[in-house]
Amino acid sequence: MNHNAENIEPLILTFGYGNRKNYDEFLKYLEMFHVNCVVDVRSSPRAWSRKWYGTAIDKLCNSINVKYISQTALGNTSGNKNWIPPNQEEATLALLEIAQIGQKETILLLCAELQSAKCHRVSVANQLHELTGIAVKHLE
């Protein structure tokens, strides 16, 4: 599924798996938007369903030639949509790293919260947009 960046505008996508029981929507979006890199922005890449554990998503992504990066420094400690990273300095470095990847590849920020309006991934995406100027699209 890895796509050449030729003729594809860079894009930052966000997606929350919520209580989804399978990968159908996730895989559909990866293909539809030619995603090259999934960035997991959970402070702990675990879930009620082992299907959404970071290790399982890494394996799934590798099987379709998509890079998976667990970036726990971009996680949230606030308990709500207001983004308070575990460590601001580490979060800043992680944003710079992901911004560099986003310049070359379409990335998808993955989190647990189904609705983007209730999730810190919107703030993470906005920060990346400010650093790169790359458009952001929130997927539900």
Results as ranks from 00 to 15, higher is better:
residue 63 S to N: 13
residue 53 Y to I: 05
residue 124 V to A: 08
residue 108 L to C: 11
residue 44 S to I: 15
residue 84 I to T: 09
residue 72 T to W: 04
residue 106 T to L: 03
residue 60 L to S: 04
residue 71 Q to N: 03
residue 51 K to Y: 06
residue 97 E to T: 13
residue 97 E to L: 07
residue 37 C to I: 12
residue 27 L to F: 02
residue 43 S to Q: 14
residue 82 N to G: 00
residue 126 N to G: 00
residue 87 N to R: 08
residue 124 V to T: 11
residue 122 V to L: 06
residue 120 H to L: 03
residue 103 Q to W: 07
residue 43 S to N: 14
residue 74 L to F: 12
residue 50 R to P: 10
residue 86 P to L: 03
residue 43 S to D: 12
residue 120 H to G: 02
residue 18 G to R: 10
residue 103 Q to G: 08
residue 52 W to G: 00
residue 48 W to L: 12
residue 25 E to W: 00
residue 108 L to K: 09
residue 66 V to N: 01
residue 41 V to E: 02
residue 95 L to T: 02
residue 121 R to K: 14
residue 67 K to Q: 12
residue 110 L to H: 05
residue 124 V to N: 04
residue 136 V to W: 08
residue 104 K to P: 04
residue 16 G to K: 04
residue 68 Y to T: 09
residue 92 T to V: 02
residue 51 K to S: 10
residue 96 L to N: 11
residue 97 E to M: 12
residue 103 Q to V: 13
residue 123 S to D: 13
residue 80 N to V: 05
residue 18 G to L: 07
residue 103 Q to H: 12
residue 95 L to H: 02
residue 100 Q to R: 11
residue 23 Y to G: 13
residue 33 F to I: 11
residue 128 L to Y: 07
residue 114 L to H: 14
residue 17 Y to E: 08
residue 67 K to E: 14
residue 95 L to K: 01
residue 136 V to E: 05
residue 32 M to W: 10
residue 17 Y to H: 15
residue 133 G to D: 05
residue 116 S to M: 02
residue 32 M to T: 15
residue 79 G to A: 03
residue 112 A to C: 11
residue 104 K to C: 13
residue 52 W to E: 00
residue 65 N to W: 10
residue 57 I to P: 02
residue 29 Y to S: 12
residue 128 L to W: 07
residue 55 T to Y: 14
residue 27 L to I: 12
residue 52 W to M: 01
residue 111 C to H: 06
residue 22 N to T: 15
residue 52 W to I: 01
residue 63 S to M: 04
residue 79 G to L: 03
residue 118 K to R: 15
residue 63 S to T: 13
residue 39 V to E: 05
residue 106 T to G: 06
residue 96 L to A: 08
residue 46 R to H: 14
residue 105 E to G: 09
residue 50 R to N: 14
residue 97 E to Q: 14
residue 87 N to Y: 07
residue 31 E to I: 09
residue 62 N to W: 01
residue 76 N to Q: 05
residue 64 I to M: 13
residue 55 T to G: 03
residue 34 H to F: 07
residue 58 D to M: 04
residue 128 L to H: 04
residue 21 K to C: 13
residue 100 Q to V: 08
residue 106 T to M: 09
residue 127 Q to G: 00
residue 30 L to A: 06
residue 119 C to T: 14
residue 115 Q to D: 15
